[in-house]
Write a protein that binds this DNA or RNA. Sequence first.
DNA 1: ATGGAAAATGATAATATTTCTCATTAGAGG
DNA 2: CCTCTAATGAGAAATATTATCATTTTCCAT
Lengths: 145, 145
Amino acid sequence: MQERWREVFHSFNKKATPSRCAIVEVFEEKKKHLSAEEVYECLRAKKKKVGMATVYRNLDLLLRMGILRKVNFGDGKEHYEMIRQALQHHHLICTRCGEVIDCGDVEDATFFERLREDFARKYRFSVASYHVSFYGLCARCQDDL
Amino acid sequence: MQERWREVFHSFNKKATPSRCAIVEVFEEKKKHLSAEEVYECLRAKKKKVGMATVYRNLDLLLRMGILRKVNFGDGKEHYEMIRQALQHHHLICTRCGEVIDCGDVEDATFFERLREDFARKYRFSVASYHVSFYGLCARCQDDL
DNA sequence: ATGGAAAATGATAATATTTCTCATTAGAGG
DNA sequence: CCTCTAATGAGAAATATTATCATTTTCCAT
C-alpha cells in the first residue's frame, strides 16, 4: 500500500521519504481532519520521529499535489483532510463548545452544479471544489442552556 | 447612527466606548470582511488611535453578541464580517492567487432548509447559519496558466 | 552495488497572529 | 460630581507557522 504512494510522489518528481509516506498514511488511517500538531502526535504514537517543520513542509506539499485540503474551524489552527475522503462531506461546528461533526452523504450535486454554472457566467470563476460550514448548537449544548 | 449602536451595547450591559463604536462603524462602512489588522488600519486612517489588543477584544465581543462572524480564507488570519451583511453571501477563493470574491444573492433557501431538517434529525444539531467556500481559479489566474 | 547531485530533514531561529497582564483611564448610574 | 466597574493601552507572552542552514537521504546513472 505504501508502494502506491511511492509512485504518486515519483509522478510529481518528489522523493518518497519515510516521513512523507508516514504522513499520508496517518490521514488514510484516521479518516478525518487533523491539525499539524495532531499529525505530529500520531507519528509519535507510531514511534516515527518526524520534526514539526517536516510535518508542515509535507502538509504543504500534499496541498499543492491536491491530495489534502485545508479546513478551518475558527480555533486558531489550520486543519487538513484528504480530498478523496472529503468529497460530499461538510462540517457542523458548534458555536458553544467548538465540537466539529463531520456530515457525509449530503445529496447536493444539483445545487453544486447550478452554482458552478452561475459563478462561471457571473464572475468567470471556475469552481474546483467547495466546502460548507454549518454553525449552530450540538445536541449536548442544546441541553445545557 | 452611532446612537443606535449605543443602545445595542447597553442592552448587553456593555459600555458604548469610542473604540467600540468606531469598530462597528468600520464594518458598516466597508461592507466587507476585514482582518483584525485591517480594522486597525481603518481606525488609523480615521485618526482614531485604538490599540491592537482593544481591536481583538472588541472583535471577540461583537462575535459573542452575534453581530460579527468569523470567516477564514486559509491565509493565516481570521477575518470578520457583519452577519447582517453576510446573509446569503458566500466566498469564491482563488487557490492560485488567494483573491476572495464575495458572491451575493445565491438562491439556495430550499437546499438550506432541507439540510437543516436532515441535521436536526440525524445529529440533533440545530443549524443557526452556514457559509459556503468555493475553491477554484479566478478569471485572471485562468488566463495566466 | 556505488557515487554524486539534488532534494529532504532536523534543530532552531524568526515571524506572524492572537491572547494575557496589569496599571491607568473613562463610562454610566446614582 | 463620585464611585464602581468595565475598558483601554502598552507591552509581554503564548501559539502557530515559516525560514535558515548544515547534515543526511533518496534515487538515478553508472
